[in-house]
Amino acid sequence: MGSALKKWKLPMIMLGPFVALIFLFFFLPVVLIVILAFTNMDSAMRWEFAGLANFQKMLEDPNLFKIMKNTALYVGFTLLINVCFGFVLGILTTYYIQKEPVSLVFRTIWMLPRMSPPVVYVLLWLWFFDPSEYGVLNSLRALFHMEPVAWLHEHPMTAIILANGIIGASFGMIIFSSAIKSIPKDLFYAASVDGASQWSIIKDIIIPAVRWPLMFVTIWQFLSLITSYEYIFLLTNGGPLFESEVLALYSFHKAFQNFEFGYGSAISLVLVIIALIFSFMMWKWFGMQKMMRSSKIE
């Protein structure tokens, strides 16, 4: 007994606070969402069991199809920018710019939006898309004597995809940069001696080496995008009408604007299920089993 306690004492001290935090802030909210999704809790905040009523309501919700479509578009395109652009930045700052101080400056610039608070970042985009003639995009149009455009109202989805895509790319850039840097230099030298083209180096050396980070970035960013809404909320608030409303924001609006806590939770529960299914699919698709084997490079 005493030896077992001695053995587990340190791990318990080290892990205890984090396990408690995970339970409190990750596990408990999911349990709460599941329970709330089966109640009709409204502004009176009473826990009244409502069976599957919220899910039936969801099936009949006239806005849900549009919102699902928006969510797919938003997550799909933003993820594409996050991963592809992050990858391009990673190659650019490690393979093409070999001088570390230069690439460091470059990476730092791309990290700036991530370091600034979301409100400040969104303020810059609001200024960029401002509907008056003083907005950045409209000032450029004015040079060609073109009328100002209300960008956020006419192209809300493009705006939210761009804003989220660009800030998200820096995350992929950091992960991919470190993965590319860990590729032994000999492989690049050997490829140069053999007269391999640039494309061949990227295709046959870099991409296979970053497969694992690629999967990590894709899954991580997917999960972040499907559940986050703060940039959309600050930029367009899902409008005009439901043009840029996504599922996570809809859940927020239903719960905290219409005070339909039960229905809002049911929508969140659907989000949790979608996220789980997608994570499982990605796990399979990227061939997790193969990746767990030891690296061929080393």
Partner: peptide, 16 residues
């Protein structure tokens, strides 16, 4: 103003 309102909404939702 809208921005300030939205920030306040976020914070109050969190508190709620």
């Amino acid at each position: 103003k809208k921005m300030r309102k939205r920030i306040a909404i976020l914070l109050s939702a969190l508190l709620m």
